[in-house]
């Protein structure tokens, strides 16, 4: 009975972490992004994260709107640059818990390089990638994550490019935590997000989400619900599955689960240990290039 909600306070529990004046959302009926936001909101509450010290950064796209609906310090950045912005945010204020919440087009296509290098550096970020397998907001063009044979605006005869296996990419680059769920797996996603919020290092969660308007309509799904039902049928939970086996192929089982959970010193820890005593000198002197050859007053003009 610990989950008993006071009957006198009849408000949706997630409203505590949402900007209620911004709702209804812009998302289409049947879109799964709002479902992932539910899981995220419950995970935020379950993890006990200090909401005053949590920031959310998102890029451009349908999923990029999430930052505007969550009652945290929110940043809606330029296309693909959510991770660089979050990196700067984390380095300037290491106390913050920084969450990047963005779409597949933003994170893996235009921002693909940033994703690789943030994982390599092991920046202390939680990256939630809502994968709807298409560039939805710009009109349904084929994205790097569009599975083979899927039809889109730019691939009317079916996509013939093999899709990007994002978990394998971030695993190879060195992420600490890699998981994939779908919008159907709300409870598992909440648990995964709670776990990831408590962990340090680069954490990556991919969430497959229905896009009824632009992906589903052209690929034989009548609405978002049909796509959710397919996730229910096709998803196979395989925790610890090798990430090279989890690529998404049309009509084949979708492997979901927690694939990677390892500990590796993050960027800030490595920087502090390597700089040793110099770290505090630099931190006290403020932002600078670290070159103090020109005297104690300051370094160069920076």
């Amino acid at each position: 009975m610990s989950t008993l909600i006071e009957p006198t306070a009849l408000t949706n529990p997630v409203e505590r972490v949402l900007r209620n004046d911004r709702i209804p959302t812009i998302w289409c009926p049947g879109c799964g992004i709002g479902t992932t936001v539910n899981s995220f909101a419950y995970a935020l509450m379950a993890s006990g994260a200090d909401l005053k010290k949590t920031a959310i950064v998102s890029g451009i796209g349908c999923s990029g709107r999430v930052s505007g609906y969550v009652q945290l310090d929110s940043f809606h950045t330029t296309h693909g640059r959510a991770i660089p912005f979050a990196t700067g945010l984390k380095l300037a204020n290491p106390e913050l818990t920084v969450v990047v919440y963005s779409g597949d087009g933003d994170l893996t296509s235009i921002g693909g390089n940033h994703l690789i290098h943030a994982a390599r550096r092991n920046m202390d970020l939680l990256v939630v990638c809502v994968n709807n397998m298409i560039y939805a907001m710009t009109g349904g063009q084929a994205a790097a994550t569009t599975p083979g044979a899927a039809t889109s605006t730019t691939t009317p005869y079916g996509s013939f490019e093999p899709e990007l296996n994002i978990p394998q990419l971030v695993d190879a680059a060195g992420a600490c935590y890699v998981a994939r769920w779908t919008a159907f797996h709300v409870k598992q996603l909440e648990k995964s997000m709670t776990e990831a919020l408590k962990k340090k290092g680069f954490r990556f969660i991919e969430v497959l989400s229905p896009c009824p308007t632009l992906y589903g309509r052209r690929n034989g799904y009548a609405d978002g619900l049909a796509q959710m039902k397919e996730y229910k049928e096709l998803a196979k939970v395989k925790n610890g599955a090798p990430t090279y086996e989890v690529a998404i192929t049309t009509g084949k089982p979708i492997i979901v689960g927690k694939f990677v959970d390892r500990d590796r010193p993050d960027y800030l820890t490595l920087m502090r240990s390597q700089l040793g005593a110099h770290y505090h000198e630099i931190a006290e002197a403020g932002v600078g290039c670290g070159d103090d050859s020109e005297g104690k007053e300051g370094c160069c003009s920076c």
Partner: peptide, 11 residues
């Protein structure tokens, strides 16, 4: 159980 609440994309 509030599973409906977890699934609702529009809160």
């Amino acid at each position: 159980c509030n599973l409906c609440g977890m699934y609702c994309p529009d809160f």
